[in-house]
Design a binder for these strands. Structure first.
Length: 466
RNA sequence: GUCCCCUUCGUCUAUCGGUUAGGACACCAGGUUUUCAUCCUGGAAAGAGGAGUUCGAUUCUCCUAGGGGAUACCA
């Protein structure tokens, strides 16, 4: 049997990391089993669904390369099919018309609460004759649920769980305006799409007992369920704006790599022994439903950031340079020249071990883009006092005579100068760094001077002298 | 209220009855280094509480507490 999984978000808000992880698990499980991964947009709540949210979902998945097979399915386009099945259930006697008003229903719930029972619909129209129907009320269609016994779900993650059927009520499958409810739509869509494994957040777990009633009434086979625990904010509560509740695209915006995001999300709730760094390809080989934990996790930005630093350091210089180019173009409206990009690429080894995000990396290499005279930050200005400027002026003479512009020679040259003049290396290196980069922290000095080239380096030092 | 689920270092997690309870992030202390970072070494840090079952419980059972989810003519 071919494995078919799906991700079924509703476009009512941004795509947060909890949703992304659900998508990732579905995608991985499909890939791991040579199956297919489908996307279904559950846009039947017309009031709350927006096109922006839909775009955000699509873009988020694309950013992470969580590609879905075939075109995405829009649930709203399948309403007639849902209605058809709903009416079929009515005809076969598995469902019935209910003429209760919202007020009656509210009253019913209130009473149940007072009597410490589950607030459920009492099934009053289950056996009533339709002739008793009140005038002018369009009925809803409710499904008949078993009133005694147990309903059992064998969930791959949650285990074998049963609830008493008297906890269930005859829930609505078609509204009074004839439109289907979520409960009906998911079941019909999952069935029609041939979904074999439903992997979703465990906020859907209790719904599953209801959905099973529809499967039974239709005599359809149940898919395999895996309800994965939810992700919470660092405070243990709901994901808040501060951590994680942001749309996934904002992590792209903050300079996080998709590799890091995927690796981070994968390890939230799933593990493979002590393995922490897991690539997409490895994940496809290793992923399984059995190793998903049952307890919820908290979103930890520090951890994501550390993973990000790791993936930046291991990414090749060409690709990083391109990301930097895009960063300047998109965020600063600066077009980096081919020559400057080459400097950045050549200086990348010194840059990338220092950055935790692409944004940091981009900021860090700004001195490669500048031309003398360059701007100086506060700390470098402080370093460049009169005494240090005279020191640089003196050293300038020696450096300008250096012919072989390689880091080893540059290092040698600087060290010899310090030795001959009986000063500490740092005494010369710090002012030099300030003059050449305009910063007090930078990649290795010899490396960056080499990359910058003789002319530009000397020009920057000379400029400080002026 | 009712039903369901969860609970190992601050965080993510390993452990399939017997371990000095392991790893990673973060943190602290050293080392390498021209700065910063990387890197290396070391350190502190956990089984929610209480009963059982067992020769032996983090692991199995129950209770309590705490947390989460579900209880819509939302999805």
């Amino acid at each position: 049997m071919k494995v078919i999984t799906r991700f079924a978000p509703s476009p009512t808000g941004y795509l947060h990391i909890g949703g992304v992880r659900t998508a990732l698990f579905n995608w991985l499980f499909a890939k791991a089993n040579n199956g297919s991964f489908k996307l279904r947009i559950e846009d039947t709540d017309i009031k709350r669904s927006t096109n922006d949210a839909k775009e955000a979902i699509l873009n988020g998945l694309k950013w992470l390369d969580l590609n879905w097979d075939e075109d995405e399915i829009y649930q709203s386009e399948r309403i007639n099919r849902h209605k058809e099945i709903g009416n079929e259930l009515l005809k076969s006697g598995h469902a019935y018309k209910c003429y209760c008003s919202p007020e009656e229903l509210a009253e019913m719930r209130e009473r149940a609460r007072k009597e410490k029972r589950a607030p459920r619909y009492n099934g009053m129209w289950r056996n009533k004759d339709e002739k008793e129907a009140p005038e002018g009320i369009e009925p809803v269609i409710r499904i008949k649920c078993p009133q005694s016994g147990l309903t059992n779900i064998n969930d791959v993650v949650q285990g074998d769980i049963s609830i008493k059927n008297n906890e269930l009520d005859d829930f609505i499958i078609l509204r009074s305006d004839g439109t289907p409810t979520y409960m009906l739509s998911v079941v019909v869509d999952d069935y029609d799409m041939g979904v074999t494994h439903v992997i979703r957040g465990d906020d859907h777990f209790t719904n599953t007992f209801r959905q099973k009633q529809i499967y039974s009434a239709l005599n359809w086979d149940l898919p395999i369920y895996a309800h994965i625990p939810l992700i919470h904010g660092m405070d243990g509560g709901k994901l808040s704006k501060r951590h994680g509740a942001l749309g996934v695209e904002s992590y792209d915006d903050m300079g996080y790599l998709q590799e890091a995001m995927l690796n981070y999300l994968l390890r939230l709730g799933w593990s493979y022994g002590d393995k922490e760094i897991i690539s997409r390809e490895e994940a496809i080989n290793l992923f399984n439903l059995d190793s998903i934990g049952k307890s919820s996790a908290k979103f930890d930005l520090e951890r994501l950031t550390s993973l990000n630093a790791h993936y930046i350091e291991n990414k090749n210089n060409e690709e990083l340079a391109l990301l930097i180019k895009n960063f300047y173009k998109d965020k600063k409206n600066i077009e980096i020249s081919v020559d400057d990009l080459l400097l950045i690429k050549n200086g990348m080894n010194g840059l990338k071990s220092r950055a935790r995000t692409i944004n940091e990396l981009a900021e860090m290499c700004s001195f490669y883009i500048e031309k003398a005279p360059i701007s100086l930050d506060k700390k470098s200005k402080k370093v460049l006092n009169n005494e240090n400027i005279s020191l640089l002026r003196l050293y300038y003479e020696q450096l300008s005579r250096l012919d072989i512009w390689k880091r080893e020679e540059i290092e040698e040259d600087i060290k010899i100068y310090c030795k001959n003049n009986d000063i500490n290396l740092g005494k010369l290196a710090q002012p030099l760094r300030a003059a050449v980069t305009g910063k007090s922290v930078s990649p290795g000095l010899y490396e960056l001077i080499e990359v910058l080239g003789k002319d530009e380096t000397l020009a920057r030092i000379k400029n400080i002298n002026n």
